[in-house]
Amino acid sequence: METQREKTHTCGTICLKYLLFLFNILFWLAGGVVLAVGVWTLVEKSDYISLLNSSFYSVSAYILIAAGVIVIMTGIIGCCATLKEMKSLLIVYLILLLCIFLLEIIAGVLAYITYQHCFPFCYQLDEELRQNLMGTMQQKYKQPGQESITEAVDKLQQEFKCCGSHNSSDWTDSVWIQSTQNVVPDSCCKTPSELCGIRDHPSNIYKVEGGCIKKLEEFILSQLYILSAVGIGIAFLQLVGMMFTCCLYRSLEEEPY
Score class of each variant (00 low, 15 high):
W171L: 09
Q178N: 13
Y62H: 08
S46P: 00
A67R: 00
Y123G: 07
L94K: 11
L64A: 12
M134S: 10
I177G: 07
H117M: 09
H166K: 13
A152H: 02
F121E: 10
T74C: 14
Q178C: 05
T172V: 11
L97Q: 09
L90T: 06
Y93I: 08
H117N: 15
S169M: 08
E128L: 13
S55I: 12
N132E: 09
E128M: 13
G78K: 00
I63M: 12
L110F: 13
F101I: 06
L42S: 12
Y115P: 00
I95N: 03
E44N: 12
C79M: 15
S54K: 05
L133H: 02
I100Y: 08
I105K: 02
W171V: 04
T150L: 06
Y123R: 12
M73I: 14
A61W: 06
R130N: 11
V69C: 14
I72C: 08
A66G: 10
V37R: 03
N167W: 03
C163N: 05
L35M: 11
V59H: 11
E127I: 06
T150I: 03
G135T: 12
K161D: 03
G108Y: 07
S50H: 05
S169G: 01
G78F: 03
S165Q: 04
S55D: 13
K155I: 02
L51A: 07
C99I: 15
L156C: 05
K84I: 06
G78M: 01
C79H: 06
H117A: 06
L129G: 00
F101A: 14
I177N: 04
Q143M: 14
S165E: 00
